[in-house]
């Protein structure tokens, strides 16, 4: 019974059916299934299937957005706002830098990481590098994820590591992605990773955390 409910959750997430996903999650919680188990056997299983389906050539944005929204919905069930700090793998600070308003890619990244139990701190779009660095200093994340669709932000991206180092934050990994940045190399941008997709970023973090593939 519990296994079939978990399957139903995975299916609801893959269907992007938020209402169904929430009601299934409520059932699981009522049956005293642990939150960690819902995440590991429900949410992460759904994300893995979506990851496998979404190759660079065949990338269905709406499908990911709907799944992401359903995941965000059940996260609210699992961790109501009044609940103290949630157990997470690590924090990641994401941003689109000053002058760039393309935030769809960043928001997809946020959903993918949240669904995989990272705590994502979003600096929004059009974000000056200094605000990003201040946020990193406050949040002490494992990594920052910069999304850039305009080539004009490249010089800002190249500055990030240096500014982190000046504040003693060199241990924070820097990931870059989005249509403009993915045309460049990691050396050229002075970052640790240039990701082709949001799942690339996820795989990279999982490697650092040592938790998965």
């Amino acid at each position: 019974m519990y296994a079939t409910t978990m399957d139903a959750l995975v299916q609801a997430l893959l269907d992007g059916d938020q209402a169904q996903a929430i009601s299934t999650t409520k059932h699981l919680l009522a049956a005293e299934v642990a939150i960690g188990q819902i995440l590991a056997e429900g949410v992460e299983v759904a994300m893995a299937q979506l990851d496998a389906k979404c190759t660079i050539e065949q990338f269905n944005l709406l499908e990911i957005m709907l799944c992401g929204r359903a995941v965000m919905g059940i996260m609210k069930e699992l961790y109501p706002p009044d609940m103290p700090v949630q157990p997470t793998k690590a924090a990641v600070v994401v941003a689109t830098l000053e002058g760039d308003v393309h935030d769809l890619g960043k928001n997809i990244l946020k959903m993918v990481l949240t669904a995989s139990s990272y705590r994502v701190v979003d600096c929004g779009k059009d974000c000056p590098v200094e605000r990003l660095i201040d946020t990193v200093e406050r949040e002490r994340p494992l990594a920052v994820g910069i999304s850039g669709l305009l080539t004009t932000v490249m010089p800002q991206v190249r500055r990030v590591r240096q500014r982190l180092a000046e504040r003693g934050l060199s241990y924070v990994k820097v990931m870059a992605g989005g249509a403009a940045l993915k045309q460049a190399t990691a050396e050229n941008l002075n970052v640790d990773l240039v990701a082709q997709s949001a799942f690339d970023g996820l795989h990279y973090l999982e490697q650092i955390v040592g938790g998965g593939t």
Binding site: E98, G99, V101, K125, D126, T152
Partner: peptide
């Protein structure tokens, strides 16, 4: 909008 001296504005 937010305007910038040397970049396109954003909403």
């Amino acid at each position: 909008l937010t305007y910038h001296p040397d970049q396109y504005p954003s909403v």
